[in-house]
Design a protein around this nucleic acid. Structure first.
Lengths: 223, 223
DNA sequence: GACGGTAGGTCTACGGTGTAAACTTGTCAA
DNA sequence: TTGACAAGTTTACACCGTAGACCTACCGTC
């Protein structure tokens, strides 16, 4: 009579929570319907009542990431400053989940938080002087670049286990150190940086700067 | 008696050929040890004599792509023109295999053709005024962006089957057309371009331009 | 020329995956 | 009270990567 529903369980949001946790520290391949089901004390097939199939579940993961983007309020700063802030907000939301970042792209034009981001970005770009179509192409590529930036974060991308990580880095360093400095003077000289950039913050700052500077550049060329 | 070897078969290069063909028109998930073995009339386990495991095989695929990059000869043009050409050569090699492009990143610092590309890129960047370490970071991000550019090629990324492709596009268009033009004026206005850019060549040209312009931009900022 | 090592195949088997189809069961509306 | 329906269960299937033991034809060496 009281509308308690003790028999109904399996909150889809909680399932996405679990999936997020698993994917974050073991990679998306570790996300398994059986494992998820087990964590929620349920049969694997139960998940199909809430997600069409595994891809649908992963899409929900992507939506979750996009929902974490907090768009800065429009101000009266110049358009490129505002663009910089919006894009920074985007990577900030993704940074925590580097192995899942690429799930977001295909959801941007589907889920609400992504659409808000898209609209705002295009707004800024047209304010900067792009035609809507050019803004679409430039914006699309910028978002792709930033997703790639996060996906390939050379620090977070490594296995979470710190000793295995250090081992993997050592092996890569050794393989570069074995190269002939005569044949590859610059690669060997900057080997450490190539394998793993010095600072994560600098890495991301540079990434956003590159994108914004690129947009600035092509805008001038077109005129 | 004649030194013919009718019993030995299974040329690893041919296996990579097959894998490439399968991945190109059905996606990398369709590449299966069993399927590959079947195509070469061999037991799945036979492949393990030539590849440590599946990842090793995919790495060989990545190497194959990188080997197709034809670096332009150094000239006396300004550094940014040369950089543009090198990066264009890179995406040109990948364009034919958009679903495999991301296999290349992890092989660049391992296989010879990738190292040549890396060294040449850093050469140009230092000539432009970057320190070796900055060249390493900027170069790395540029390569990542370009790989993402190819990977997300909105035309080639679609399923190869043209009728299914047209269907998928139609569905996306419909979903965007259903949005409120009041809430998302720019997104709905540029819907077609967002879903699928007008010209592939323009898409790639813009991509490379963005990267090169970005590098130019951050270089000036640093001084 | 006999012979042992080895490279390149085969066979069998295991544990894991996503998911289709048919079933049970608890809940609420009529 | 009944009956529809949503949620979870059971069973089953086809497929995957790969470990381990085995065969077998070749090759260089004495």
């Amino acid at each position: 009579m009281i509308s308690k529903e003790p028999a109904r369980r399996l909150d889809p949001d909680k399932v996405v929570d679990s999936a997020l946790a698993i994917a974050d520290d073991e990679g998306p391949a570790a996300v398994t319907l059986r494992r998820l089901a087990g964590q929620h004390e349920v049969t694997p097939m139960a998940l199909y009542r809430h997600f069409k199939d595994k891809d649908d579940l992963l899409a929900a993961l992507g939506d979750r990431l996009l929902a974490d983007v907090v768009l800065p309020e429009p101000t009266d700063e110049p358009w490129d400053r505002q663009l910089h802030k919006v894009l920074t907000a985007f990577v900030t939301a993704l940074r925590g989940h580097p192995r899942l970042a690429d799930l977001t792209l295909m959801r941007i034009l589907v889920a609400e938080p992504g659409l808000a981001l898209a609209e705002r970005t295009m707004e800024i770009l047209t304010e900067g002087g792009f035609s809507p179509d050019d803004a679409a192409e430039v914006g699309r590529q910028s978002i792709c670049s930033l997703i790639a930036l996060v996906t390939n974060d050379p620090i977070a991308r490594e296995v979470s286990d710190p000793i295995a990580r250090e081992d993997s880095l050592r092996r890569k360093r050794a393989s570069l150190a074995a190269l002939s400095p005569r044949k590859y003077p610059l690669v060997t000289a900057a080997a450490d940086t190539l394998i793993c950039p010095t600072s994560t913050d600098r890495y991301y700052a540079l990434g956003v700067d590159l994108v914004v500077a690129g947009i600035h550049g092509v805008l001038k060329e077109e005129k």
